[in-house]
Amino acid sequence: MNASSSIETYYAGAYWRLRKESPEECGRRAEAFFQALSPIDPYFSRWFKLGRSRKEALKSRIETRQADLEKMFRRGKDKLFEELGFRISGWNGEGDDDEACGFYITCGGYAEEVGNVCVFDLPNTGPNAERVLTAPVLTGLVRAMAMAWDPDDAVAMSHKHRDLIPKPHPDALVGWVTYLARRRGTVPPLPAPVRIERVEDKGSLIILTPERFTASNPEHIALAERVRELLDRAGLLGPVRS
């Protein structure tokens, strides 16, 4: 989705490595994920397959039951390299390109060179963006990712903020809403207004600000950098140990 350069665009992504899973297991996780999305906001309640045109795509509704999602994963299998896992993608058909949400999921991969992901491109403009780009909705989205996919880490942040982080990027990025699996370690105390929430026995959510986090706000960037330093010092942002 392309937006004006003056608009700060956002995404959410969950990341995990080396987990060999079958299409059935991927379908089960995807069903749990999509079922958890609907109560967060109506914007996440319907999905369509990608098509050659908008009209064509809107005729291809994605049924979010395990059996149907399993079929999609099977069709998305890499034909040459089984270790690359299974892929599905789609969008929600809302408004124009800047108002819609697209997703891309890779599951079941176990190659060292690649990872498994669940990434959402979020709306940029309009009433959907005003409603979705809030701490409660993004916290719910990242929590749903954590519960369904059991990733090593997940984040909701702006592309502009990500671009400000010096490269090479750490294994786990710190954004507006960050999830770190318990296997990464214990989250230390963090400065106000940061809020930490447990995700059952899986890990922790870290919400930097209750208002919209923007890369144009120096206070927001300074807070993110302080939190990154504390998490890095605690050993939480590097590669996950086997």
Rank of each mutant, 00 (worst) to 15 (best):
D98E: 15
D98L: 06
E99M: 14
A100M: 07
A100P: 00
A100F: 00
A100T: 12
C101D: 01
C101G: 04
C101Y: 08
C101T: 13
C101H: 00
G102F: 02
F103C: 12
I105C: 15
T106K: 14
T106M: 11
T106A: 09
C107Y: 05
C107M: 11
G108C: 02
G108W: 03
G108N: 06
G108L: 11
G109C: 03
G109T: 04
Y110A: 03
Y110F: 15
A111Q: 07
E112F: 07
E112C: 00
E112K: 05
E112N: 01
V114I: 14
V114C: 04
V114H: 08
G115K: 01
G115Y: 03
N116V: 09
V117M: 14
V117W: 05
V117Y: 11
V117D: 10
C118V: 07
C118A: 15
V119F: 06
V119I: 11
F120I: 02
L122A: 10
L122S: 04
P123C: 08
P123D: 02
P123L: 09
P123N: 08
N124S: 15
T125W: 04
T125F: 03
G126F: 01
P127G: 12
P127S: 14
P127Q: 12
P127F: 08
P127V: 12
P127D: 14
N128S: 14
N128K: 09
E130Y: 05
V132E: 00
V132W: 00
L133F: 14
L133E: 08
A135Q: 12
A135N: 10
A135K: 02
P136K: 13
P136Q: 12
P136W: 05
P136E: 13
V137C: 07
L138M: 14
T139C: 07
G140S: 08
G140P: 03
G140H: 02
L141D: 09
L141F: 02
L141S: 05
R143D: 05
R143W: 00
R143A: 13
R143T: 08
A144D: 07
A144R: 02
M145Q: 15
M145Y: 02
M145H: 07
A146G: 06
A148L: 08
A148Y: 03
A148H: 05
W149L: 08
W149D: 02
D150H: 14
D150L: 14
D150Y: 12
D150T: 13
D150M: 10
D150S: 05
P151H: 05
D152V: 11
D152N: 09
D153A: 12
D153I: 00
D153G: 09
A154H: 12
A154C: 01
A154V: 01
V155P: 02
V155G: 04
V155I: 13
M157F: 13
S158P: 12
S158Q: 09
S158N: 11
H159A: 12
H159K: 08
K160L: 15
K160A: 15
H161E: 11
H161I: 06
H161V: 08
